[in-house]
């Protein structure tokens, strides 16, 4: 699986209230909410992101609440993947469960500039300015969920097998 896209660069500790403020959480659908993604920090971002773009951030991306709207909204903006130095725990699980690809990398966030293009080959490498950085593969149980297309799909499959 290969993703090539333009990067949007954010800082450390991008919390769930930045990704989607509580004010909008009780809206009916992710579609209604997604225009407010990242609004406390960068109100213009949601409208600027194009399908396949990549978000690059510092440490502890997604810290804060357990709101799953956070990864769902990023997914609904059709972001190719999020690369960060580290991810907060609940966000990480929620992202995998929604089939949003996350890549942990210490170095890359220091090197990229907003607007540059990079290529990510899942579980293999990141390519930036003709340089390649190695990636380690995801744990098997997570890859299974991603391969199924998220936890809902995985459960659907399981429940239909039971029938």
């Amino acid at each position: 699986m290969k993703i090539k896209g333009k990067v949007w660069v954010l800082g450390d500790d991008i919390d769930t209230d930045i990704i989607i403020p509580t004010e909008y959480l009780a809206m009916k659908s992710i579609h209604d909410m997604k225009q407010y993604a990242f609004s406390p920090l960068r109100p213009e971002l949601a409208a600027s992101i194009r399908p396949g773009d990549i978000i690059v951030a510092g440490k502890n991306f997604g810290c804060g609440s357990s709101r799953e709207q956070a990864p769902e909204i990023i997914k609904s903006l059709q972001v190719g993947c999020v690369i960060a130095k580290s991810f907060a725990r609940i966000f990480y699980r929620n992202a995998i469960n929604n089939g949003l690809l996350l890549v942990e990398h210490d170095l890359l966030p220091e090197l990229v500039t907003e607007g540059e293009d990079i290529t990510v080959s899942v579980g293999e490498y990141i390519e930036h300015k003709d340089k390649r950085y190695d990636l380690s593969p995801l744990p098997t149980n997570l890859m299974e969920i991603i391969a199924a297309g998220g936890l809902v799909e995985a459960m659907k499959k399981k429940n239909s097998r039971n029938d």
Binding site: G64, S65, S66, R67, E68, P71, I90, R93, N94, N97, N98, G150, L151, V152
Partner: peptide, 21 residues
């Protein structure tokens, strides 16, 4: 809810999850 960790105060392993999980 992320603050589900609160019940650790009485010795429970409690943690927040998303709605899909």
């Amino acid at each position: 809810d992320s603050h589900t960790t609160t019940y650790g105060s009485i010795g429970a392993f409690s943690s927040g999850v998303g709605y899909t999980e």
